[in-house]
Write a protein that binds this DNA or RNA. Structure first.
Lengths: 348, 348
DNA sequence: ATAACCGAAGTGAGCGTTAACATCACTCGG
DNA sequence: CCGAGTGATGTTAACGCTCACTTCGGTTAT
């Protein structure tokens, strides 16, 4: 069935159709300067040979750019995964191809190593810059090919507007909102189980979750407890959160994401603390499972898929220069109150 | 800082080092036939120019293949996501690049459309063939370029051994094991909330989850209830499972994956049925969250990441022909008993 | 001392496309 | 009825790299 022969090239089509290879190229690329009769002949030849254009050659020859490379440190995390989905969707609709390369923190890579992942110099690249490896990659690319990169991360509206290569949402603002919500519920203070920072220290960016949380507590004149650092995995979070759930004075925990929140719910359950009776828990991201836990998780919705699409649009703008700089067009993070949050028990 | 000039090519390096472009190529590719002094000169020039080889050109010129394209219908599902991770890891360690293209069931694509996603004819491709779009893509690629494709899906050991392009695990066997476990616990029968089938009908493949489940019930002489079909999303599952949780005669449900199991737990809770007291629930896949739900989910562990790696190895074997056909080397699916399963309540 | 050999390097021809320019047959206005 | 357009096509030169040869100076065997 399958011919072991080499795939047909534009020249083979040209020969069969009795035209020049350039005419075939014109037909394939939909140039209007081709007679209808010729076009039909060529199309017929293409069908007969099962010809498919070779994108590598196309790019090499200086055709329009048509591929993006996504650099990310974790594809199992909901945020990056959803953003990647948005990128892929947007890219596919324009017939761009999407490459993905994972920045594994395990193998410490040099700057050269990071750049070597790109299939060619100047390859359009989107970086998920929410953690340390991502931030580093962002810096490397910024030094190497700033005109062909876009980074996704937590930034304030001002930061986003000021930088031509940034896309993201203001997590700090969202975290502030969630913290305020818990305070308004009557909690004395709110504790924070934090995702790994991208900078090594908490408070590195105004748009970081931990930062928005701390800001609200300070502004309200409340004690700001030390944030409890956790890794990204649920198992790590489960371990890290133990002291918090064991402490009866802790009545509310804002978790850096829904995975951490799930771990916290589990830990609270095992510690014999009821949720939300003894302990209110708020997550982050509105991960699909969050609406179906028992009790259902109060969390902050983030439309990562739209952000991913936005990143692609911005990148395209920067690479082609053609379209005007696209405006951010995704919904703001929004608190979704479900069942894991409520007023604290009255002091006894 | 960044020079807007074009990136350096092999010729630029050659000129600067005072050698021919071929010598540069030799150095870059680690050929032994280069004098040490020359090599150093070239390396220096490379560093100075910041030269990076262009993979597109390399592939075009007939260098070794060094990219894989992964075709999948759903990146948010744990299985495909984990397999993709395995593929990426294996590929990266060999310096291959990974492309990803999502088979969106929304835009019904023609066979030609599927093939058009590949960057070039003969592009090495791995297909996640666990659902309808995947199966279709598998068929198309099988007809087009069987020598450069590998499919991942649920197959029996015999099927896997017989086909040179198949990789996967025997879900049927695992489902059978889980069903038997529930029967042994004393349940009269076991109901099944099923993931979408890849063939349109249940029982299409011996290695399918629904098939293994039905087989055990039949063999045990039990009634085989109609499997309840669900979509992939938790929300769909939640809706689909309602009749099951509402029926007090249903004491055990085997769910097609952990998402469906989570939905079932939630539905059971809302219906006032305790788990595992009134209802035993078993999931599939050992999704990370499954160990942290309350109660923790009994499920079947699947090492998708290893399967992904295996798929890559097999593909490499088929494309290069060099290495001997790699043997499957991942753990068998294994039942993990946690807290959502137990004996039925004694009849009253 | 001469032929045969070997390692180090260079030359030229593609790989499949597109961009830029050249050519050719018409058609049209004056 | 001829020069200028114009639309349809062909020709040539990249793009950055690898492959298959060729060349050249210095050994080694005879």
């Amino acid at each position: 069935m399958a011919q072991p022969k080499k795939a047909a090239s534009i020249w083979d089509v040209a020969r069969l159709a009795g035209v020049s290879h350039q005419t075939v190229s014109r037909v394939v690329n939909g140039s209007p300067r081709v007679a209808a009769a010729t076009r039909d002949k060529v199309l017929e030849a293409i069908a007969e040979l099962g010809y498919r254009p070779n994108r590598l050659a196309r790019s090499l020859a200086g055709g329009a750019v048509e591929s993006v490379t996504v650099l990310t440190a974790d594809t199992s995390l909901y945020g990056p995964e959803a953003a990647l989905r948005g990128i892929e969707k947007a890219a596919r609709s324009l017939d761009w191809s999407v490459q993905i390369s994972v920045l594994d923190p395990a193998d410490t890579h040099s700057d050269a190593d990071i750049v070597a992942r790109l299939p060619r110099a100047g390859e359009p690249t989107i970086i998920m810059a929410h953690d340390e490896p991502g931030m580093r990659a962002k810096q490397v690319l910024l030094d190497t090919q700033p005109q062909a990169m876009v980074a996704i991360g937590p930034y304030t509206a001002e930061e986003l507007a000021a930088s031509p290569w940034l896309v993201g949402m203001d997590d700090g603002k969202a975290a502030a909102e969630a913290t305020k919500y818990l305070l308004d519920l009557g909690h004395e203070t709110v504790h924070h189980l934090a995702i790994p920072t991208s900078t090594g220290t908490f408070g590195g960016g105004k748009a970081h979750r931990a930062d928005g949380w701390a800001r609200v507590l300070r502004d309200a004149g409340r004690e700001v407890p030390d944030p409890v650092p956790s890794g990204w995995t649920i198992a790590e979070a489960f371990k890290a959160v133990q002291p918090l759930v064991a402490d009866p004075s802790v009545t509310a925990i804002l978790c850096g994401n829904d995975n951490l929140a799930l771990a916290t719910m589990r830990a609270a359950h095992l510690a014999g603390r009821s949720v939300p009776g003894d302990l209110s828990i708020v997550g982050f991201d509105n991960t699909p499972f969050s609406a179906y836990t028992t009790p259902a998780l109060t969390t902050v919705n983030q439309d990562f898929e739209s952000v991913g699409r936005g990143a692609f649009e911005l990148l395209r703008h920067r690479v082609d220069g053609a379209n005007p700089r696209p405006k951010p067009s995704w919904p703001e993070p929004e608190l979704i109150v479900r069942e894991t949050s409520g007023p604290p028990r009255p002091r006894s």
